[in-house]
Amino acid sequence: MPASWPGSWRKFPLGIHLLFSALPLMFLAWGLLGTAGEGFHRSPTLYPRPFFDPEETAQYLVDSWKARPLPLKERIVAVWGLADAPEGGVDPESPSIVLALALARAGVQIRVSDPGFLEEAKPLLGERVAFFPDPMAALEGAHGVLLATEWPAYLEVDFAEVASRMAGREVLDCRAAWDGEAVDGAGLFHLVYAKPSYPPWLDPELLAFARHVKSKVGEEEGILMVPDGRLGTLSGRARWFLHLNYLLFPRRLYLRKPALACGTSGQYREWVLDWNRERPWKGTRRLRLGDRALSGVVDASPIRSLTPDETKALATLNADWVLYWTHNSDFRITDWECVPAGALP
């Protein structure tokens, strides 16, 4: 017995260790089932539902609206969806209820609509907001529409009609659920306030824009990437140039100081701070080159005149196109424009 004892006690920790094989087994099983549910395609729907912080969002919106000419009290916003989720319920903690109340308290005129829980929401929202059974009616004369619950009916909406009914052009998407290409195509600003859990290379607007560039730019051609001005965020998610570089390969994409921009996240931040400190865009002016190629928002183009360094780079790098962008952590088609170098004055 004493001789076999050491061998026996060793079995115990080994057995415990083998039990941990349950973790990879679960991981593999759930991973395969999850991807099978989406037809084995990488897509944002594989990831948890995008969410938003209602108080933070309300504060951000109010602050940005305060900086605009239109007084807060005259601003009308339609909030679509009050339920926690499609077929979910409403309660005082529901994000859309909290958001609608916060905006209303700030003085914004709020019109709410929900296909399933409008009556239940009335006691929660009181008389601070106006209730609209018809969501399209809520848009008449509104300055913006805010999607708080992604009811299927809201996702199939015709944005041309939305644009025709609204006085403003802000489409505030708190669930990252609306088709950004369709929103932009109607001349509206698609502003996503959801915190997406899917990675940046799956962003639908990024992929739509990459398809657009591929259709215009030959594989042998070169593209000079040019920010339109100050870089507005340090967010790593805003490194859309890396993903475009991958998606558009073998097209040649060029960037200013790429060694910093493509380095670690710390180097990328240095690249942003350097750009904003050096202000290389200083002295350039905004340009209008007629209709935009993809975006329907004609008056928000990022195109500007080139600096002497950029003009020189176009020639030395044999680049045929200039890809302008406004630096944002959310990829918006509105922010991007690819123009032939020859079309620039």
Binding site: L18, S21, P24, M26, L28, G34, Y47
Partner: peptide, 28 residues
């Protein structure tokens, strides 16, 4: 072979660190 194959890190690290909600992110 069994010790090696049972090491979770061979496949995934910190699986279920956030509870069973992590199941939805398996493979992502």
């Amino acid at each position: 072979a069994l010790v090696a194959a049972s090491v979770p890190m061979l496949y995934v690290r910190d699986f279920l660190a956030e509870g069973t909600g992590g199941l939805a992110m398996a493979g992502l």
